[in-house]
Amino acid sequence: MNTIFSKLAPWALPISLLVCWQIFSVIGVISNRFLPAPSDIGLATIKLLSNGELFEHIFVSSQRALLGLLIGGAIGFVFGVVNGISKISETLFDSTIQMIRNIPHLSLIPLVILWFGIGEEGKIFLIALGVLFPIYLNTFHGIRSVDPELIEMGKSYGLKNGQLFLQIILPGALSSILVGLRFGLGIMWVTLIVAETISASAGIGYLAMDAREFMQLDIVVLSIILYAALGKLSDWMAKVLEYRFLKWNPNYQK
């Protein structure tokens, strides 16, 4: 009984809000010019699904987001590991990375357009740049937070550098790295929303901007819901990774 309640409880508030939203729309408290009813958004969803247009936009947006995540995440992870292990590397690179991190990456949009034009490269660059820093910081912090006594114990058992990293340092830092991944996923979707308003020809952002031109408020709201749903899905997948790779940790055992 408690298991069923724990699974259903998180959905109680969203479903209640959805029901109230529909009721207020039907009785005229909420005007369709201000916010379309959930039923209208549902009909728009069915229409876009039937002609395949919705799947196409979701695929294009997901492709952009994942490519930016892979590029930015890989760079952030590598710098986090190298700077976390090596004092020399930290001295050379960390200050520069921190200076770049303090520049709001979305403020670079005019410069990105001049560099890359309005094609896919600029959008992916912005996403990669936004994702890079949370993953870098959490990886760096995770490496530096590993208990030195565990490292000494590994050395006493004869573990070499590569073995020491894979068996002691990386598992000890993994919790922090995955937290960085979850932060990065949130920034990834926020950046994608803005990036897709830069003369895109496909994607959820393009769908919303095109609907705005024709005053199709139901599709605009649908686009917002799609971003929220994809963000929730990616966060859930990150939590699955946490329970998969940190099952040795008592805090992640079911």
Rank of each mutant, 00 (worst) to 15 (best):
I109T: 07
L43S: 12
P10G: 07
I204M: 12
R144G: 05
T91N: 14
K123Q: 11
V179A: 06
S156D: 08
A200F: 07
F77E: 04
M188Q: 07
P110M: 00
L192K: 01
G80W: 03
A211M: 02
E152F: 05
P134L: 04
L137T: 13
Q98V: 13
G205E: 02
I225E: 02
S89H: 05
F55C: 12
Y227E: 06
I143P: 04
L49T: 00
I127K: 02
P250D: 11
E90Y: 03
R33Q: 09
T197N: 05
W21V: 05
G180C: 08
L217T: 13
S50W: 05
Q167M: 10
G72P: 07
C20Q: 03
A195T: 04
V131Y: 10
S175F: 12
N251G: 08
S145W: 08
L132I: 04
K239P: 00
T91H: 06
K160G: 11
F93I: 13
D94E: 15
L111Y: 09
D94K: 11
A12R: 00
L8H: 03
G72N: 01
I46Q: 14
V221E: 03
K232Y: 12
S39N: 10
T139C: 09
R244T: 15
S156M: 10
M237N: 01
D147K: 06
L35N: 02
R244C: 10
L43Y: 15
F116Q: 01
M1R: 13
L241H: 08
A65I: 05
L126M: 13
G142H: 07
S39L: 15
I41C: 06
D94L: 06
V179M: 09
E53K: 11
I88K: 15
I193L: 13
L106F: 08
A200K: 02
F165N: 13
Q163H: 10
I4N: 08
Y252M: 04
Q98C: 08
G119M: 03
E121S: 12
Q98P: 04
F125S: 02
L222K: 01
G73S: 06
I109L: 07
V221F: 11
Q22L: 07
F5T: 15
V112R: 00
S31K: 11
G72H: 02
F140C: 05
F24T: 12
R182T: 14
I198F: 05
H141D: 13
L17M: 10
I135G: 04
R101G: 01
K239Y: 10
P134A: 10
L92D: 05
I204E: 11
K247A: 14
G52I: 10
F140S: 07
S62I: 00
L217I: 12
